[in-house]
Write a protein that binds this DNA or RNA. Structure first.
Lengths: 138, 138
DNA sequence: GTTGGTGCAAACGCTTTGCATCCAT
DNA sequence: ATGGATGCAAAGCGTTTGCACCAAC
């Protein structure tokens, strides 16, 4: 699987550097929306010398490659998480900000209804759900 | 109607200053999601001496009073628009960024379904729709 | 008159960039 | 070997803050 990712980089003429690998690993291990600073802190545990600018640049690259998604949490902070496979919607835990991906996209039906009601064809949508996950409710 | 707004301010011990009035008027007149800079520019046409910091502070106040809503557009820029009455979802035009409010909240049904599927009670949601408005399609 | 608001400029924090060095290929 | 990537530090930019003055009440 790391092999596949490597080739995604190489196909674009990009290098699969330890730094980029580390950023990806942090996101894979956590599976939550992480702020740049948290990502940087976790990356430095794997690769101590890594600079903040590199984290920014790595994330930008990973977003370009559609391996990672950038979002806005409720408080306005930018955060990043692994790109979901296919069309999904995140449920963000209001306590621990862990992310549960929800596979059904219920908006497709909705879009048709909205288009009919308003006369505006819906091209895109952004849906984020907030709730408390099982662990945080315990 | 300006009378009502005035009393909303006074009930909180806040002053209804020309600057705050101007910011509100700009949002009322445009009825679109506006960036701080656009708001500042438009406010200065009404009240030339107005400083940028005042626009920031006015918007913060207006958001506190729930007269105005702060959102994130797709490009990550903060923008502001008049607070909708009741629970609504905005449809943002991908061309002119005008906002059409959509009154139906179709997420209530959805929330129940998602809660059942995932076991997570959905506390809140954020939905934004994107499409091209009638004028921009013409 | 009192108290909160404004304008200005400085400070702040997040993000980007320039550049010399380094390293994955 | 070589071109892209990194690390550092400086610059950039949007936003916030301190303070003296001003205006709404």
């Amino acid at each position: 699987m790391s092999k596949d990712i490597r080739s995604i980089f190489h196909e674009q003429g990009l290098k699969f550097t330890p730094q980029r690998k580390a950023v990806l690993k942090v996101l894979q291990d956590t599976h939550a929306y992480l702020s740049i600073n948290k990502i940087h802190a976790n990356v430095k545990e794997i690769l101590p010398g890594t600079g903040l600018a590199t984290v920014y640049r790595s994330l930008e690259t990973l977003v370009d490659l559609e391996l990672v998604v950038k979002v806005h949490l409720e408080d306005g902070c930018h955060s990043y998480t692994l790109a979901p496979e296919g069309h999904r919607h995140p449920i963000v835990c209001t306590d621990c900000s862990k992310v549960i991906e929800y596979t059904d996209c219920p908006i497709e039906d909705l879009s048709k209804k909205v288009s009919k009601d308003t006369g505006i064809p819906i091209q895109n949508h952004f849906l984020q759900l907030f709730g408390k996950c099982k662990e945080c409710r315990a």
